[in-house]
């Protein structure tokens, strides 16, 4: 057996060259693509991890925002409730004020109507009183009543102020004496003397019959009027009944 050294050398070189060739054309490219896949897989995993972390952060943000929305909703609801309560209170207060105003107006209207009714009733009562008085007086003898009232008229004239009596005495026209019943000339002369004495001076008097006086008479001077008749008394009574009765009127009636 013989060793061919040329073949040994060439085969050594061949294997060394093949080592280089396979390293260059086979092992290195395959290892490179495996490494690239490993890097890509690692990158994909890192990206997935980053995406997962980002998704978790996003979910946390959304959860926080949801909680904020819920809190804000509660706040808005509370504000709306407060506003509704305030508005309800304001409306209630306004309604109470309006009710109070309407009640006051109703009370005022009722008072006015009650006053008007009272006045109407009082007027009717006055009219009724006058009617009753007139019917009662009609039962009395008018001449005697007239004589008594004329006496009272004379007494009233006597109590007039001096200026009024002088005015009556100096009247250019005769002072009219209206009587409820017609006076005979003798009676007229007698009463003229009494009145002239009460007035003083040379006063002149003219008598006139006025049935509307019912009873009594009136002294009608140019500036002085002295009334002492039932008509006048009933008028004062009716006036006192129609208006608020005054102490003076009551005194006069008495």
């Amino acid at each position: 057996m013989r060793i061919d050294w040329w073949t040994l050398g060439l085969q050594t070189v061949n294997v060394l060259v093949l080592i280089w060739l396979l390293q260059h054309f086979l092992f290195k490219p395959v290892k490179a693509v495996i490494e690239a896949r490993r890097v890509a897989a690692g990158r994909v995993l890192e990206e997935a991890e980053a995406d997962r972390a980002r998704a978790q952060a996003e979910a946390a943000t959304l959860e926080a925002r949801r909680r904020d929305f819920a809190a804000e909703g509660e706040k808005i609801l509370a504000e709306a409730r407060a506003a509704a309560t305030a508005e309800r209170d304001a409306l209630l207060a306004e309604a109470r004020q309006e009710a109070a105003r309407l009640e006051a107006e109703a009370r005022a209207t009722l008072g006015r109507e009650r006053e008007a009714m009272r006045q109407a009733l009082e007027a009717q009562a006055g009219e009724l009183a006058v009617t009753i008085a007139r019917r009662l007086l009609a039962l009395l003898p008018p001449a005697q009543v007239t004589a008594a009232l004329l006496e009272a008229l004379v007494q009233e004239t006597t109590r007039l102020p001096p200026e009024a009596r002088r005015d009556l005495a100096a009247a250019p026209e005769p002072v009219v004496v209206a009587t409820a019943t017609p006076l005979s000339p003798a009676e007229q002369e007698a009463w003229r003397a009494r009145l002239r004495q009460a007035v003083g001076g040379g006063a002149d008097f003219a008598f006139r019959h006025e049935p509307a006086l019912i009873a009594g008479g009136e002294l009608q001077g140019p500036h002085t009027l002295v009334r002492r008749s039932w008509r006048a008394d009933l008028d004062r009574l009716a006036h006192a009944l129609t208006l608020a009765p005054q102490a003076g009127d009551v005194h006069q009636l008495a």
Partner: peptide
């Protein structure tokens, strides 16, 4: 230099392996 048949066969094997490796690794993808 005498070129023996083992050397020739080795060259063929080298051509086969290197060429095959080059062909197979031309379009490596992930």
């Amino acid at each position: 230099v005498p070129i023996t048949t083992p050397v020739l066969t080795s060259w063929a094997i080298m051509l086969l392996l290197a060429g095959g490796g080059w062909l197979l690794t031309r379009r490596l993808v992930l």
